[in-house]
């Protein structure tokens, strides 16, 4: 078989190659986790349970802790306790009035702003809503 014939014969395999590429792409898609972006509105607590300036730790639907802080008569802030650096959990340090991350020593103030260390942005906050003295939070459920 000369080179020309060999090339001609190879052409016959192009559809097979295409099919193989397609199956490879499907396989690639299969091992890539599916994601959906659903925003949920979750009831957390009654306003009476949270005095002004007090905070409460609750667990969201994904099992992660978050903190609710009542900052005004009808104002509640919801903050994640997950460090924005690499995802460890922060501790509230009463003496310093700071959140402290034990992994890479990041520090946040009581509003979640970065005070020291490597975290690139403030602690994540959740949109909150008060309806009939019930506190609701909205969070994105990105789990597949």
């Amino acid at each position: 078989m000369d080179r020309r014939d060999a090339l001609k014969n190879m052409l016959a395999f192009i559809p097979l190659g295409g099919a193989f590429a397609g199956i490879t792409a499907m396989g690639f898609r299969f091992i890539t986790p599916k994601k959906r972006d659903v925003t949920r509105r979750i009831f957390t607590m009654h306003l009476d349970e949270l005095p002004i300036n007090a905070s409460r730790q609750i667990t969201d639907l994904r099992g992660k802790d978050l903190v609710l802080v009542r900052t005004g008569e009808r104002e509640v802030k919801a903050m994640s306790t997950v460090c924005t650096h690499l995802g460890c959990t922060v501790y509230w340090q009463k003496d310093n009035q700071e959140f402290y991350c034990p992994c890479h020593a990041g520090r946040f103030d009581k509003d979640g702003n970065v005070v020291a260390g490597p975290p690139p942005r403030p602690l994540e906050t959740y949109h909150t809503e008060i309806e009939d003295d019930n506190v609701f939070i909205y969070f994105k459920d990105a789990e597949g």
Partner: peptide
């Protein structure tokens, strides 16, 4: 424990 990072890690 997904909610508590150990203080000394």
């Amino acid at each position: 424990n997904p909610n508590v990072t150990p203080l000394h890690i």
